[in-house]
Write a protein that binds this DNA or RNA. Sequence first.
DNA 1: TTGGTTCTGTACTTTATGGTACAGAATCAG
DNA 2: CTGATTCTGTACCATAAAGTACAGAACCAA
Lengths: 194, 194
Amino acid sequence: MARPREFDPDTALERAMQLFWSKGFEATSLDDLCDATGLSRSSLYAAFGDKRTLLLQSLERYEARIDSFVGGSLDRPVPIREAMDAFIDDLIDRIVAGPGRRGCFLGNCAAEFARSDREAVAKVRHGLERIEATFAAAFERAQARGEIAADADTIALARFFLAAIQGLRLVGKANPDRRALEDVKRVMLTCLDR
Amino acid sequence: MARPREFDPDTALERAMQLFWSKGFEATSLDDLCDATGLSRSSLYAAFGDKRTLLLQSLERYEARIDSFVGGSLDRPVPIREAMDAFIDDLIDRIVAGPGRRGCFLGNCAAEFARSDREAVAKVRHGLERIEATFAAAFERAQARGEIAADADTIALARFFLAAIQGLRLVGKANPDRRALEDVKRVMLTCLDR
DNA sequence: TTGGTTCTGTACTTTATGGTACAGAATCAG
DNA sequence: CTGATTCTGTACCATAAAGTACAGAACCAA
């Protein structure tokens, strides 16, 4: 062992992820990344490999975070409908206020890489499936509590909410209008009443 | 008047649009555009202005086309639920088969330009609102026919389907799995039964 | 035919990009 | 203290990009 690192890789990755999330992969230059992380090119490359590898690591980081965020939001001692309502309301608040306007990092990467990077898309799919499973688990618990019809298909519901929320966030980018987004939310939530 | 054009601007724009739709704006180079259209740089610039202007024109072209496609799909002599089912099934078919995997051009641009190009986003919003209106009109007609509950909010329904379909197409990019997408469709359609 | 005008293709310029080389600074083991 | 080793910053390289200049081809009017 010799000279130790002068930076914290964890915070550097966090900053890189935030930047990729906000600007997308192509639109983020290495200079941008160096500015945001405070690292020089050499340190960046030594620590994380090239730009694309850094993106893949950012995706993994995001996946873990978003999944635990979703899980935490839905695993509260309130009816599932109430929890979902609050969860989506929170998303809408952030879209309208601005910071949520950058969408979901997974969704952004799905849009950007669908045709060009199979490995990145595989990571995105993995992340989406994980969120889907988290939704499904919450719906199953709610079903056991009698809050969702016993014959409801919780997997289908999970897939639906996954897609609908991606759509909400995407549409919100172009039209961050609270009323419109709340209309979407209201109809979405009726799918739990059955 | 002097030397006439050797190309058809309409087909050139069509090809440019297809390319932007498939690859996105940043990832499409001028060389790509010249290859696809068969034009030289000079002709491209003289006819359409710079790359960004060409994208904006592509957006307008797409908007008109997608709106008339949606309108045509929903304005058939069948119950609205059946028409929506067929419409979404068609989307799913294309996603699974491949060509639909590039998503909706409006959605792609929403994702790519949300933060970087207000004018492009305004065009996207305009297009989305137009589709929303087309959905709403179809739902109102269906409501008048008694196929949708008289107290249903057709605007909210339109906004919901707009977002949900964007979500379906986005998720389909990362995971073009027919069963999963049909699950999403099935739950979506229940929102018309009320 | 001819002259003015518009179109087309090539070659170029400028700028920005991702990635690398390398010299020197900082550290720890012995 | 010393020297091997790892880290950091600067300078650099090659490439690709968007956009432009310009010469010459194609056309129409007279």
